[in-house]
Design a protein around this nucleic acid. Structure first.
Length: 472
RNA sequence: GCUCCCAUCGUCUAGAGGCCUAGGACACAGCCCUCUCAAGGCUGGUACGAGGGUUCGAAUCCCUCUGGGAGCGCCA
């Protein structure tokens, strides 16, 4: 495992990916890429009721968006495939038979109602709810009787009565779980469907996965999977259990609670590099304080630098990385990024120019909306304090500006020079009223670039309006 | 209920007995730079959940408590 691990991400397509899922995927991916290993994508679609093919596609799109690619997956199978559990029934069946024939598993005829009663009774008695073992040692006669009754049995794994399961978790360290606290668990439902514990562990082993990074919530189930694998004589992967990613209120992210999804973040305009840099530092330390390029992500990731404490999803941290990402955007990429808010009639060149001009002042594409009127048409009303600045400069100032503009065009340095000569003003006394007159606001990108980006006719019109402006 | 896991600034984290009057980053405040905003530079405030031990010495080890989480499913 030290040299070239095989890792995987194994989502169940029951909804959109959350940042926490994506982090697990990213870490698994980076763990493989950092050392020249392989990364697999396996779809765990064994829940026909909730799964959907749309979710599979959406999840793959989220992964690809972040820059995660897989050596094998549902869309790219190989000898170890298929990579959709819904297509692996024959494999599961074969291993069920093996387990059953060697006595590691047995048919269980208990009904859900019976099990529920037993569970309640145990809970009431202060006992942990564990399978009581009713069907554990049914003789042939009893078994035949049940079968004659027509009820199809589930298949239950026989957990050893004594001993313990020991493993060394990559992030949690040595774990030792007493078999006595593990009840016999179902591996095949009465309807013949394989259960998560089973397919998940079996597929990892069969696909040659050597390192599994997954959520904390699987930690206490790991012994069951280890038992299963050892009964099958298969090599188990190394496990590393990542702490959960929490919502800002400190509760675990979940679909039910409406936690933010990766898809929603993408729709808002967050950039993949921003999310990657953000996730890289959640439950993982040792990455540099500064921005990490996507090509350097794998080198910045260390599997032995994973933390144990849960982390909160903090949008402001994400926004910091987003700002970094936006600043780093090439002009044409920035134009694409802003495409959703640009007027459709704008040509490529104009989009690039506008993007270059604005990108330093934007966090999300929606922020650009406020600037469209400045570059195009229809300045809104200005704030009282801004009107006051314009009024203070006075009609003479703007008339001089008009004259100067006619001579210099959109060359701010020369324009300012002439204004200085004509009005005796300098510095902020020139730039500030000019900025406000031209843009209707007192903040924003460099004025020189702004002046160059506003059509000359509009520049004149705005200067004329400013000249007519009175205080109050 | 039982078993297991987690616990450092508001947030992400460093810290594996003395290097910690706890470091960095984000956020926040102030200053500098600057036509403004952003960026950048500098400065500042804010944290070891509580209580007991062990030790010459504890954020670091042990115990208890508190708080949070997970698992105990014919869900994944």
């Amino acid at each position: 495992m030290n040299s070239a691990p095989v890792t995987r991400f194994a989502p169940s397509p029951t909804g959109d990916l959350h940042p926490g899922n994506l982090r697990t995927a990213l870490f698994s991916y980076l763990a493989a890429r950092a050392t020249g290993g392989r990364f697999l994508l396996r779809v765990e679609d064994t829940d026909r009721a909730r799964d959907s093919v749309d979710h599979v596609a959406a999840q793959m799109a989220d992964l690809a968006w972040l820059g995660i690619d897989w050596d094998a997956g549902p869309d790219r199978s190989d000898a170890k495939g298929p990579y959709r559990q819904s297509e692996r029934d024959a494999i599961y069946r074969q291993h069920f038979e093996r387990l059953a024939s060697q006595g590691s598993a047995y048919p269980c005829f208990c009904t859900p109602a019976e099990l529920e009663v037993a569970r309640r009774t145990q809970l009431a008695a202060g006992q942990p709810p564990r399978y009581a073992g009713t069907c554990r040692s049914l003789d042939a006669g009893a078994r035949a009787k049940h079968e004659a009754a027509g009820r199809p049995p589930a298949l239950r794994f026989r957990v050893p009565e004594a001993g313990s399961v020991d493993f060394d978790d990559l992030v949690r360290g040595i774990q030792s779980i007493d078999c006595a606290i593990l009840g016999d668990f179902v591996i095949r439902r009465a309807d013949g469907g394989a259960v998560f514990f089973f397919c998940n562990a079996l597929d990892d082993a069969l696909m040659g996965v050597t390192l599994v990074l997954r959520g904390d919530d699987h930690l206490s189930n790991t012994p069951r999977q280890l038992l299963l694998l050892s009964a099958l004589g298969l090599a188990a992967p190394r496990y590393g259990h990542l702490p959960l990613l929490l919502d800002p209120d400190g509760l675990p992210q979940s679909k039910r609670r409406g936690s933010v999804t990766v898809a929603a973040l993408r729709a808002e305009g967050f950039l993949p590099g921003a999310l990657a840099n953000f996730l890289l530092r959640l439950g993982h330390h040792g990455a540099p304080d500064a921005w990490v390029e996507s090509a350097a992500l794998a080198a910045a990731f260390r599997v032995d630098h994973l933390g144990r404490a849960p982390a909160k999803f903090d949008r402001r941290q994400l926004e910091h990385w987003q700002r970094e990402a936006v600043h780093r955007l090439e002009a044409d990429a920035a134009a694409d990024w802003l495409a959703p808010v640009f007027p459709p009639e704008w040509l490529r060149e104009r989009r690039i120019a506008a993007a270059r001009l604005l990108q330093g002042n934007l966090l999300l594409p929606a922020d650009a909306r406020a600037w469209l009127p400045v570059l195009g048409d229809g300045l809104g009303p200005m704030a009282a304090e801004d009107r006051a600045v314009v009024a203070e400069a006075g009609a003479g100032f703007f008339e001089s500006a008009l004259t100067a503009f006619a001579a210099t065009g959109a060359d701010l340095a020369r324009l300012a020079e002439q204004l200085k000569e004509r009005t005796g003003r300098k510095g902020a006394a020139i730039y500030r009223p000019l900025r406000i007159a031209l843009t209707g606001r007192h903040d924003g990108p460099e004025l020189a670039a702004l002046l160059a980006a506003i059509p000359a006719a509009l520049v004149r019109e705005r200067l004329e309006n400013a000249a007519r402006m009175r205080p109050d």
